[in-house]
């Protein structure tokens, strides 16, 4: 509980590098036993902890540009851990962990009121409208470290928390109390062929995420990197996903500006 030892796991996603291939989404689905249906075309009914958005600058050729934006859970800290979704959950099924900065979701505690979905402006939280049905034989390839969820509850990205636990177990077995940067990495980070995703402890100056994000803790983690932005920073969600882009229109797209395009 020692304050300086607290971690703030976070991510930096370099949008200049992202090609929109979707490998992060696939890796995440496989890693976390995310259910899917035969026809998963309606994206408002399907579940994807990581979703890649396609952004356009709205201009016509030859100025037309587009950008892909991967969106995992933003793991909002809000003000002192008062993240939009955690504070509203009536059954304490979600929690903000001050020691890791991870917003957890307890599937067996959730009873499906969906208040957290209403609270999250990023549409990170998704509902199991159906019970999961795995194609024949696929049960054997499910990840044993992640429990499968049933219908009627909400789920979301956990920053592959089971990997953190596994890494900690290993470190403890080896008599260490701390992890090396590479020992805890999320599935999406490792799957990205372009190396666009960097993951680590934002509080640790030695970690790559800290160097890229340059969070200013006096100002709720605002980045000092002129290329960096966070989604909907103005709302005070204080997220731990930093995006990098050399393009101004992309950086602006992260702000609330619904009809300004």
């Amino acid at each position: 509980m020692d304050q300086p030892n607290n971690k703030r796991f976070g991510m930096v996603i370099d949008l200049d590098k992202c090609t929109g291939c979707g490998a992060c989404m696939v890796a995440c689905m496989a890693e976390n036993n995310v259910p899917f249906r035969e026809d998963d075309t309606d994206k408002l009914l399907s579940i994807a902890w990581m979703r890649v958005y396609r952004l356009k600058n709205g201009k016509s050729f030859p100025q037309a540009e587009e950008c892909f934006l991967p969106r995992p859970c933003q793991h909002c800290e809000g003000h002192h851990g008062h993240s939009p979704c955690v504070s509203v959950c009536p059954a304490t099924a979600t929690d903000y962990d001050m020691q890791t900065g991870i917003v957890s979701q307890v599937p067996t505690r959730c009873f499906g009121c969906r208040y957290c979905m209403a609270a999250c402006p990023y549409h990170v939280r998704q509902f199991n409208w159906w019970d999961p049905v795995w194609p024949d034989g696929m049960e054997r390839s499910l990840n044993p470290d992640v429990s499968v969820r049933m219908r009627g509850i909400v789920e979301k990205c956990s920053f592959c928390y089971h990997r953190y636990q596994r890494a900690l177990d290993k470190a403890y077995a080896e008599g260490r109390r701390d992890l090396k940067e590479h020992e805890y990495q999320t599935a999406c980070t490792q799957a990205c062929p372009a190396g666009a995703i960097t993951f680590g402890d934002l509080n640790n100056p030695a970690h790559a995420v800290h160097k890229l994000a340059q969070p200013d803790m006096a100002h709720e983690g605002q980045s000092r990197n002129p290329k960096a932005f966070r989604l909907l920073e103005r709302l005070g969600t204080n997220t731990k996903i930093y995006y990098l882009s050399s393009k101004e229109w992309v950086r602006k797209a992260g702000d609330t500006a619904v009809q300004k395009a």
């Binding site: 059954a91 959730c110 009873f111 499906g112 009121c113 009627g152 509850i153």
Partner: peptide
Amino acid sequence: VGQPLRAWFI
């Protein structure tokens, strides 16, 4: 609620 049997959790 998605899981009515757990409604008492509230």
